[in-house]
Design a binder for these strands. Structure first.
Lengths: 166, 166
DNA sequence: GTATTTGCAAACTCTTTGCAGCTTC
DNA sequence: GAAGCTGCAAAGAGTTTGCAAATAC
């Protein structure tokens, strides 16, 4: 399920090529910031998603001297050209992940520890087809999120701790 | 598919009873604001969803003298006790709808006119069961949203208009 | 009567905007 | 060199918080 480093590099290269092409087509400039943000997001391990602030701080702690505004701008551009996926999970900031790395997948969020797991179930495609037909829509993409309680593992109940009053 | 007025009243009454019970159980107070917000949300026609600001203004334009903060508080409480559902559609404010009125359903958002349609497809339950088992989670609820382009009707391309530069 | 809830305004968080200076083409 | 992009700080939008006054129990 996880991806080896050489394969990872290859995927990142593919992503950069797509970005090249997109920037060319749209007559936009190839700034180093745009490629850095792309890289940073593509280096995320599976099951990990990142918000703008964390990404900004992480890049600042490295050699980059990027600004928050540029992170926002670049990330929007990457979402637009389909290289990055944006998620709006319930009661969380917007979270981002690479679009090309892992097969298309959906998400399960634990109500207690807030951990996010990924899964894949092909029958969602059937629903998509049926509904697209019956509601006259050319369905381009979807977001499927399950919310539940971990039944095994050390689920930490972060949320409950937060809410606890004493 | 739509609900007659007498049935509507009955559903609202049922919602109020559940709220009564919840407030009793939690030792919270039965304030008129909480019931007014519930009512206002339950009066929404099908396919309509409301955000906090619109709800606040709508109530202010009626006989109510509710504050924004109270709308936020009440609505959170109603979500907690399961009477109201909160949605985080892509690039939209949080939107709310009644939980008891129509059968559980999912949503299709048009990428262009931003209209929201509702649909029902039972096979989502199968996916839920399978994934809950394989990822060891007691899945309580889900959010399924399709994003597409209307293929018929007068789809107004609101979004494209907004983005247009000339 | 006491504790909770409300209303208001101020604070906070996340995101966008305006603009001078820098970079890409 | 012109247009686009960046960085910064300030502004905006949506939401939360603190506190005095009002209300439920």
């Amino acid at each position: 399920m996880s991806i080896s480093k050489p394969v990872m590099k290859e995927i990142l290269q593919r992503a950069k090529n797509i970005l090249d092409e997109y920037l060319n087509d749209q007559n936009l400039r190839k700034t180093s910031e745009r490629y850095s943000v792309l890289e940073e997001i593509y280096y995320l391990p599976q099951d990990e998603h990142i918000d703008v602030e964390t990404l900004f701080l992480r890049m600042r702690n490295k050699e980059y001297t990027i600004s928050r505004a540029t992170v926002y701008n670049s990330i929007d551009l990457l979402v637009e050209c389909g290289l990055v996926v944006k998620h709006n999970f319930k009661d969380k900031n917007a979270l981002y992940e690479p679009a090309l790395t892992y097969e298309h997948h959906d998400h399960l969020v634990c109500n207690n520890c807030l951990k996010i797991k990924e899964f894949l179930d092909p029958s969602i495609e059937g629903i998509k087809k049926r509904i697209g037909k019956s509601l006259s829509s050319d369905i381009k993409n979807h977001s499927l999120v399950f919310y539940g309680d971990c039944t095994i593992e050390n689920c930490e109940n972060l949320k409950r701790k937060e809410v606890a009053k004493d």
